[in-house]
Structure formats: C-alpha cells, structure tokens
Amino acid sequence: MQTMRGPGKQFEKGQTGNPAGRPKGARNRATLALEQLLDGEGEQITRKAIELAKDGDGAALRLCMDRLLPARKDRTVSFELPPIETTADLPRATSALLQAVAAGDLTPAEASDIGKAVDAHVRAIEAADLHQRLLRIEANQQ
C-alpha cells in the first residue's frame, strides 16, 4: 500500500513508486542489444583501436590509454599521524598534517580528507567521554 504525504505527494521513505519495476540486476535493453551487435567482434575492434592509436589517431590513443591506465581517484598516502586517544592529542595531529602539507608530503586535498577522518575520530572520543561522565554521575546519585 502506498502512503503519500505533503504537497509533493512523495512516497514514504523506503517505498518505491513502482514496486513492479525493473528487478535488481536486470540489464538495460540498449546494453543487451549493443552486446549482441558486438558479440564476437570485441577482439577485432580492440585491435583496430590499437592500430589507430599507433598510427597517431588522438581519439583512439586516448581511448586506449583510458582503458589501460584509468585516472586514479585516490592514492594510498603514507603519513605518520600521532596517536589520538584524547582530545588533548588533537593539536599534535593537526600540526603534523600542516607540516606534511608544508613539506609537500601531502596535498592540501589529502590533508583535508585526513582531517575529516581525524574530526570523526575526535567526535567519537568526545561521545565516549561524555557517556562515561554520565555513567559516573548516575552512579554517584544512587
């Protein structure tokens, strides 16, 4: 049963507007048609693209390189981050991040990503500390 709400008549969270829609894993008809057209031709087409690339065709060269060496989204970063066990450890960690950026060991974007992870870790420490403090207060009131 569909439950609509509000002026936009949106469905309840987790409910699809088309329960009889395409099942998970079903393939697109256009994709299936293209695969049938290329069936058995893949190796020949790949060889032709390589030949064109070798002959200097820029588009073919780009296609081949994109397949051989796709652009990396991220890289593994080797970075010595001081341990963060309490919020008091945070200044040492952020200082290490800033020094690594200044030295060129990390890009500003990498430091930002690591900083986000550090921030999440610090929030987890704060939440655990708060929980322990509340437990102690409750225990003292009894």
Rank of each mutant, 00 (worst) to 15 (best):
residue 1 M to H: 09
residue 3 T to W: 06
residue 6 G to C: 10
residue 6 G to N: 14
residue 7 P to M: 14
residue 8 G to M: 10
residue 11 F to T: 09
residue 11 F to E: 08
residue 11 F to G: 05
residue 11 F to A: 14
residue 13 K to W: 06
residue 13 K to L: 11
residue 14 G to V: 04
residue 16 T to S: 15
residue 21 G to N: 04
residue 21 G to D: 06
residue 21 G to H: 06
residue 21 G to P: 00
residue 22 R to T: 13
residue 23 P to K: 11
residue 25 G to L: 04
residue 28 N to H: 14
residue 30 A to W: 02
residue 30 A to P: 00
residue 30 A to S: 14
residue 30 A to G: 07
residue 31 T to I: 10
residue 32 L to I: 14
residue 32 L to D: 09
residue 32 L to N: 07
residue 33 A to Q: 12
residue 33 A to I: 07
residue 34 L to C: 05
residue 34 L to G: 02
residue 35 E to K: 09
residue 36 Q to D: 13
residue 37 L to I: 13
residue 40 G to V: 01
residue 41 E to Y: 06
residue 41 E to C: 07
residue 42 G to Y: 03
residue 44 Q to C: 07
residue 44 Q to V: 09
residue 46 T to E: 13
residue 46 T to K: 11
residue 47 R to H: 10
residue 49 A to K: 00
residue 49 A to I: 07
residue 50 I to A: 04
residue 50 I to C: 01
residue 50 I to Q: 03
residue 50 I to D: 00
residue 50 I to N: 01
residue 51 E to G: 02
residue 52 L to E: 08
residue 54 K to F: 04
residue 55 D to Y: 03
residue 56 G to R: 02
residue 56 G to Y: 01
residue 57 D to N: 14
residue 59 A to I: 08
residue 60 A to F: 00
residue 61 L to P: 01
residue 61 L to I: 02
residue 62 R to Y: 11
residue 62 R to P: 00
residue 62 R to Q: 15
residue 64 C to Q: 10
residue 65 M to C: 10
residue 67 R to Q: 10
residue 67 R to S: 07
residue 67 R to Y: 08
residue 67 R to E: 12
residue 68 L to H: 05
residue 70 P to N: 02
residue 71 A to R: 10
residue 73 K to V: 13
residue 73 K to H: 11
residue 74 D to G: 05
residue 75 R to D: 08
residue 75 R to A: 11
residue 75 R to V: 13
residue 76 T to G: 05
residue 77 V to P: 04
residue 78 S to L: 11
residue 78 S to T: 13
residue 79 F to D: 10
residue 79 F to S: 12
residue 79 F to A: 13
residue 81 L to H: 06
residue 82 P to E: 02
residue 82 P to M: 02
residue 84 I to K: 01
residue 85 E to L: 10
residue 87 T to E: 15
residue 87 T to W: 02
residue 87 T to L: 08
residue 87 T to V: 15
residue 88 A to Q: 13
residue 90 L to S: 03
residue 90 L to Q: 03
residue 91 P to E: 03
residue 91 P to R: 01
residue 92 R to F: 04
residue 94 T to S: 08
residue 94 T to Q: 11
residue 94 T to M: 12
residue 95 S to F: 03
residue 95 S to P: 00
residue 95 S to K: 11
residue 97 L to C: 03
residue 98 L to N: 15
residue 99 Q to A: 15
residue 101 V to P: 00
residue 105 D to P: 00
residue 105 D to H: 10
residue 107 T to N: 10
residue 109 A to P: 00
residue 110 E to I: 07
residue 110 E to S: 07
residue 111 A to S: 14
residue 111 A to G: 12
residue 112 S to Q: 15
residue 114 I to Y: 03
residue 114 I to L: 15
residue 117 A to E: 13
residue 118 V to A: 03
residue 120 A to T: 02
residue 120 A to L: 09
residue 120 A to F: 02
residue 121 H to T: 01
residue 122 V to F: 03
residue 123 R to W: 02
residue 124 A to H: 09
residue 125 I to R: 01
residue 126 E to F: 01
residue 126 E to T: 05
residue 126 E to V: 05
residue 126 E to N: 05
residue 127 A to S: 04
residue 128 A to V: 03
residue 128 A to E: 12
residue 130 L to K: 09
residue 131 H to D: 12
residue 131 H to T: 14
residue 132 Q to L: 06
residue 133 R to S: 12
residue 133 R to C: 07
residue 134 L to C: 11
residue 134 L to M: 14
residue 135 L to H: 09
residue 136 R to C: 09
residue 137 I to G: 05
residue 138 E to T: 12
residue 139 A to Q: 15
residue 140 N to H: 10
residue 140 N to F: 13
residue 142 Q to Y: 06
